[in-house]
């Protein structure tokens, strides 16, 4: 088990290097250090000396990937790519191009992100499982049929529609909660209710439909027939036998996204003006702040790899048949 985890973690290193290279290339295909300097110094009439100075201060005065002027290993290490990437592996994100400490910003902005993502996940999970079990109980009836139709309809509607529609009805017409914004402490609750509810509703269609499939797949298995032949009631069959087995794919599907909850949601945070990591990333992209974009992509990859390892471990916890080796 330990050996397995170590091996999986080691596999993560080449993946992270690859992610870094690709982010770097994509970013500098679109931008050049020159553009970045102009962006930060103001677009018009910037003296070439000022640009040069900005590049020097921020470490963008070197070649991108390969330094022909240097010799030996320095031709690879004395470049923007190497200098900027190597520290990421020690989780030192450095300062952004506008001079702020990225590590500090992340530690501040992850809390609003979590405050939306965690309740959305938990409430959504509870509601989806409940609905799916209910539909499974009424399998092969009209209730089942129309529920699936409803799920497909709900899946087909864009998340943007739920957000804008929700803001219009709940905030603008009914004045129940503010349209957008954020506050510290308990004051944040009134800003969080709407995005959480909308996040849950937006996920019901696909979640319920998927869990229903999982339940029905289990319900038709032989061991369920054995359980019934023991004289168990339908409730006990569903909760004791079917739910336990169907929870295996459900749980592991949840565990893989757990670490990514930190990253926040790009769209929701932007629309509701929540100062989380999602909106942080969007703002950085708009400002062409490479330091932040690269840090966030790197962090996302690390968390994703972590999520996959956690998934494997969680399998061994919920499924007695699985042993890691």
């Amino acid at each position: 088990m330990m050996a397995y985890i170590v091996r999986r973690a080691l596999y993560g290193i080449p993946i992270l290097i690859g992610v870094n290279v690709i982010t770097f290339m994509l970013f500098f295909v679109v931008n050049s250090p020159e553009d970045m300097a102009r962006m930060h110094l103001g677009m018009k009439r910037v003296a070439p000396e000022a640009i040069q100075k900005w590049k020097q201060e921020h470490g963008y005065d070197k070649p991108l990937l390969y330094n022909a002027a240097a010799s030996g290993t320095e031709s690879l290490t004395d470049t923007i790519f190497f200098e900027k990437s190597i520290k990421l592996f020690q989780f030192e994100f450095g300062s952004s191009d506008s001079g702020r400490d990225i590590g500090y910003d992340i530690s501040q902005r992850m809390w609003p992100s979590l405050a939306i993502a965690v309740p959305t996940l938990i409430v959504g999970l509870a509601i989806n499982i409940t609905f799916a079990l209910l539909i499974a109980f009424f399998r092969a009836t009209y209730i089942d049929y129309w529920s699936v139709v409803l799920c497909v309809v709900m899946m087909s509607i864009s998340a943007l529609f739920y957000i804008i529609g929700g803001q219009y009805v709940v905030s603008k017409l009914l004045h129940l909660v503010p349209v957008s914004g954020y506050d510290t402490g308990l004051g944040a609750v009134k800003f969080l209710i709407l995005p959480v509810i909308i996040g849950v509703i937006g996920g019901i269609g696909s979640g319920t439909r998927w869990y229903r499939t999982l339940f029905l797949e289990e319900i038709n298995k032989d061991y369920v027939r054995t359980a019934r032949s023991k004289g168990l009631s339908e409730n006990r069959v569903l909760f004791q036998h079917v739910l336990k087995n169907a929870m295996i794919p459900i749980l592991t599907g949840v565990v893989v996204i757990l670490p990514l909850l930190f990253m926040g949601s790009l769209i929701t945070e932007n629309f509701f003006g929540i100062p989380g990591l999602g909106s942080y990333t969007i703002e950085a992209i708009n400002r062409q702040d490479f330091a932040i974009v690269r840090s966030m992509v790197f962090l996302g990859s690390v968390l994703y790899i972590l999520g996959l390892i956690l998934t494997d471990i969680s399998y061994t916890l919920v499924d007695p048949r699985v042993r890691l080796s």
Binding site: D222, T226, S229, G231, L232, K244, I248, D319
Partner: peptide
Amino acid sequence: RNERGGRMGMIFQEPMTSLNPVL
């Protein structure tokens, strides 16, 4: 349900699949 598994018990063809794997 009292009769099922009470006065009447049943065993099945596929022992591999007729037990719940997680209990």
